[in-house]
């Protein structure tokens, strides 16, 4: 069952088309990740979906509700962490949580949430005195107070240190284990690879790739790289192997590029037969980051 259905969503800011006819669906219980460079339209998409911004075209359906019409019912069933929200000066953790609890029809007890996220001892602290990671946990807790079926996370881990980031990943996994659907945006490829069941890469307001992580990597059609060090002249040997597309040499380290992993066996075999000495052999398969850079085209354009 789809809990989010977006069809031909469009958002125009004066002369800029920030979101250009994008469509996607998110299945119940899955973690859907939206990736893209700054200004690609990620936040605008989230804000249009949840009805914070008026869309200029297309349709949005969350849990069977249109956010531009049924927002009050919808807001009782979804949780949102917005990018870069801070809170009132001198508000304490329990006051903020308490305030959010009174806003919802069937709220969850925030004390349990604070315990679960390891913030029970911070209940009387000022929110402004918490660390970045703790503040993001508060953002999740506030999003969870409505006991939402769908939760939106906009760059949850941006600006956090690696420890705090891994902490947040655990939190997100737990949300999924509880049967909630997660829609998230992120800049971090490893985060998307680790968390997301389905990702979509958005660039200049358009979706340029959408699938599970493996599918996206496959469809990007990037060579696998076999890298090793040797003093022997291997270029002519490698040239004879069918599947190898290209060879690069740099300071005694050689890289062979190919799509078909059959090439690995062929190369090793050929080295054995010709007594080639090599060391530090590594296979580098394309990962999401390579795909992302290829598709969003930044590094490549600059290199040309």
């Amino acid at each position: 069952m789809n809990v989010i259905e977006v069809v031909d969503l469009k958002k125009q800011y004066k002369s800029v088309l920030a979101v250009d006819n994008i469509s996607f669906t998110v299945e119940e219980g899955c973690i859907f990740g939206m990736l893209g460079p700054n200004g690609a339209g990620k936040s605008t998409t989230i804000e249009c979906i949840i009805g914070l911004k008026k869309r200029n075209g297309g349709s949005v359906n969350i849990l069977g509700l249109d956010p531009s019409v049924d927002y009050e019912r919808l807001y009782n069933q979804i949780g949102v962490q917005l990018q870069e929200t801070s809170y009132q000066d001198k508000i304490k953790v329990y006051e903020l949580c308490d305030l959010f609890m009174t806003m919802y029809k069937t709220p969850t007890d925030y004390v349990k949430l604070l315990k679960r996220f390891g913030l029970a001892d911070k209940v009387k602290s000022y929110v402004s005195e918490l660390s970045g990671g703790q503040r993001q946990k508060i953002a999740i807790i506030l999003a969870l107070i409505s006991n939402p079926k769908v939760i939106f996370l906009d760059e949850l881990t941006t600006g956090l240190d690696p420890g705090a980031r891994h902490d947040m990943w655990q939190c997100v996994k737990e949300l999924q284990q509880e049967g909630r659907t997660v829609f998230m945006t992120t800049h971090y490829m490893e985060e998307a690879e680790y968390l997301c069941d389905k990702i979509c890469i958005i660039h200049e307001g358009k979706i340029i790739a959408m699938d599970d992580v493996d599918g996206v990597i496959e469809s990007a059609d990037i060579d696998t790289e076999l890298i090793f060090e040797t003093n022997d002249d291997v270029e002519s040997l490698l040239g004879k192997i069918d599947n190898v597309n290209r060879v690069e040499k740099c300071n005694g380290s050689v890289s062979a590029y190919f799509k078909d992993e059959e090439a690995i066996g062929d190369i090793i075999l050929s080295f054995k037969q010709n007594n080639v000495k090599y060391k530090k052999l590594n296979i580098i398969r394309p990962n999401l980051e390579d795909v992302y850079l290829k598709l969003t085209g930044k590094e490549w354009k600059e290199a040309e």
Partner: peptide
């Protein structure tokens, strides 16, 4: 509240 997006945060509550 507007600068800190607190108003925006309140808007996505009921």
């Amino acid at each position: 509240y507007r600068d800190r997006k607190i108003l925006k945060r309140f808007m996505i509550t009921p």
